[in-house]
Amino acid sequence: MAQKTIRQEFFKGLWDENPVTRQLLGLCSVLAVSNAVINGIAMGLAVTFVLVFSALLVSLIRKIVPNQVRIASFIVIIASFVTIADRVLAAYFPQLSKAMGPYVPLIVVNCIILGRAEAFASKNKVGRAIIDALGMSAGYVLTLLLMGFIRELLGNRTFLGAQILGRWFEPWVVMLLPPGAFIMLGLIIAVSNLIDFKIKERQKQP
């Protein structure tokens, strides 16, 4: 298999291998925190931080760690970065930390991170691992923001807390609740599959 260019390595996270719509990883956090855009931003930044730094470390020590204990060491590394993110949020952004509730500590078991550490960072050079991590984070954040935007708008009439739909619009409370998250996620995956299908079909016809 030919090596991807750096560009491709980054952009695959946005579409072809988007962690949420393609790999269906990290869905728990996507469903839980996408009821407001601000939560999506905070969660996205926390995940990006953890993903990039664990990719860096995992890639650095990939030749030292014996195969049998690799998962254990990856988890320790990931958990450390998650704890740092959690403490720093609580210390400097108490409002956000409160809104995120238990979902920051739960990044430890977010499959995107262990998945990328295992599938990519532990097999590639540091630079490439970081690019991959950045691409994956970008894909995750964008999906989260898209969902947060639609759910907050329909469920609460607001964008980032500012009211943009008038009183005439009766909020769809279901959008803020777990069922709304599932419905929205399903629709987003369906639409992205449809677009992907159309693109591939067009590519087939010369």
Binding site: I61, V69, A72, S80, A91
Partner: peptide, 30 residues
């Protein structure tokens, strides 16, 4: 295996202890 896991654990542990110390006061203050 033992050496690597111990080293990873020790390093993470001590690093976390530092972060915990630095942020503790601020979290209580908040």
């Amino acid at each position: 295996m033992i050496v690597v896991l111990t080293a990873v654990g020790l390093l993470s542990g001590s690093f976390l202890a530092i972060v915990g110390q630095v942020t503790k006061e601020r979290i209580i203050f908040n």
